[in-house]
Every structure is written in structure tokens, then in C-alpha cells.
Design a protein around this nucleic acid. Structure first.
Lengths: 139, 139
DNA sequence: TTGCGTGCAAAGGTTTTGCATGGCA
DNA sequence: TGCCATGCAAAACCTTTGCACGCAA
């Protein structure tokens, strides 16, 4: 018996293509709808939401929130950037919305501490550090 | 001529009381509405939102988002807790959904490192560590 | 008296859900 | 042929806004 997500459909393929094409920029569900329809696709809104949810579960994209926007942001987790090195962490600037990728041993140390002392195992893919980036802080 | 926020009203007072009473727990706008109405208040939803917004601006409470919930979370910035000690961080268990509050000096050290070496200033109230809590890991 | 704060209801926007149909395996 | 995926529309939700009235100063 087949299970959820086992079928390969045109919409699914086009959506993944569209997302891989975002290269480091975050997007909303509405962005994807607009972009795909411009490209001639007739994908439905509900399908976009359902597929985005699946991709988040699979770790292909990550989901987060930026204050000013009332809708969720997604971002493609490019395997070239994210899986070759040690776990990579994300820092999201609350001002400019930039997403920094950080490969920092200090964070790894913190993880070990949290695990040893507090029993909490951090999931690097889901965790996003919010704050202010260097450039915005200068202003 | 009076300016915005210059009037002292019953609703405003009751709402602040209600929020001070949350001691370390986060809440949504709906939580406040329910809690206040249980206490006999007849405050309107719009007023709760308007007052919460004002309190965020004043820095009395802070606002952030948690993935699964579609509504904003608020938390009272108790002056006793937040200015004497290190800031408090949130750890969200991906399995059971529990939100832990953590007051840990190691995280503070990480913050200082990120700021000094990477120029990134973490916002403790917005940042949520996702992972697996001790209890769920035991299973 | 002045005009801010409130409550209600309606509007606005995002995301989810129900259901019949379409399409992959 | 099974049954998952899709699309549409409606619903569900959270939050904001317009407006008339009440109430603080």
C-alpha cells in the first residue's frame, strides 16, 4: 500500500524546482503561488501549503517568522551549503531579514552542554537564532 | 491636549494586573481575553490587542512566534527576572510540544561570542531552540 | 467639554479543511 | 483498479479597522 508523499506529480516537481530556484532568499506561500502561476502553472493554493508543509517535515526547507510580516517565511536549505560541513546554524536578522549561515564550534559546545546538563538535544535544522546582524547594528 | 496612552482606564489596569500575574509563562491575546473574562472583566478583544501592542512598544512585554501556533506569543518582562539575571531562553520540544524556560549562563557566553566574533546580536526573546527534551529522549 | 479609550461588528489576510475529481502506480 | 494528490470553495483563525458611545481629565 502506498503512503503519503509517495506519488510523483507535476505540481510537486514544479514546486520543488521553483523553490530550488530561490537561491538563498526567503519566500512566503503566496510568493510561490504567484511565481508558479507566472510560469504557467495552475497549482492551487491548498496544494502549495500542503507541499510546503511536507518539505518542512523532510528538512528540505525551513519555516520561520519575521515580525513585520503576517505570513510565514520559508527558505530552501541548499544541500551544498547545509550538508557537507558540520551542522550549520541559522541567524536571522530581524531588521533586514537576511539569513546568515553559521558554522561555529561555540554553538556545538553549547549543544553538548545543553544535552549533558539540561537533557535537551537541539535540532540544528529547525533552530533559528533571531537578532540583529552586524550591518544593521552599525546603523 | 492629551496624548495617546495618557488616560488611566479600568480595562488597562486590569490587563496589566493580569499580565503581571503570568510570572514567566507566555500567553496569547486569546489567553488574556479568556482569563480576564473569567475574572469578571468585560474587556473587548480589540482593546486587548491595542493594549498589548502598546505594552510591546513600551517594552513591558515582548512578542514572539512559535512555529505550531498561528498566533503571537507574549511574555511579561518581569523587571526582577529580566534585569537582575541573565535573560531567559526558550526551548521547544518537537515531540511533546513543551516549552521550557532556561536561564543558562552558557547561552549568555555564546551570545557574547557571536556578538564579538560574528557581529550578530541575539534577541533572547525571539529565539527559540528546537529539539528534543529529556523526557522524550528517554523513550 | 474635549478627545482618548472602549466595544461591537465587520473587514482583511493567512492558512486549513471538506469533498469531489484527477492522475500516479 | 486503488487510493493519494489536487483544486475549488468554504471555513477557521488571528488581527486590524471603522464608528459611535462612554468616560477620564
Amino acid at each position: 500500500m502506498p503512503e503519503k508523499g509517495s506519488y510523483k506529480t507535476k505540481q510537486k516537481e514544479e514546486l520543488v524546482e521553483c523553490i530550488e530556484d530561490t537561491r538563498g532568499k526567503h519566500f512566503t506561500a503566496a510568493d510561490i503561488c504567484n511565481k508558479m502561476r507566472k510560469n504557467g502553472s495552475t497549482i492551487g493554493t491548498a496544494t502549495v501549503y500542503r507541499q510546503l508543509e511536507r518539505l518542512v517535515d523532510e528538512g528540505v526547507i525551513s519555516k520561520y517568522f519575521i515580525d513585520e510580516s503576517s505570513s510565514a517565511c520559508f527558505e530552501y536549505m541548499d544541500p551544498d551549503t547545509h550538508q557537507k560541513h558540520a551542522p550549520c546554524y541559522h541567524c536571522k536578522c530581524e531588521k533586514c531579514g537576511k539569513l546568515l549561515h553559521m558554522d561555529c564550534s561555540e554553538i556545538t559546545e553549547l549543544n553538548e552542554h545543553l544535552k549533558a546538563e539540561h537533557g535537551f538535544t537541539i535540532d540544528p535544522l529547525r533552530t533559528v537564532f533571531y537578532g540583529i546582524c552586524a550591518e544593521c547594528a552599525d546603523k
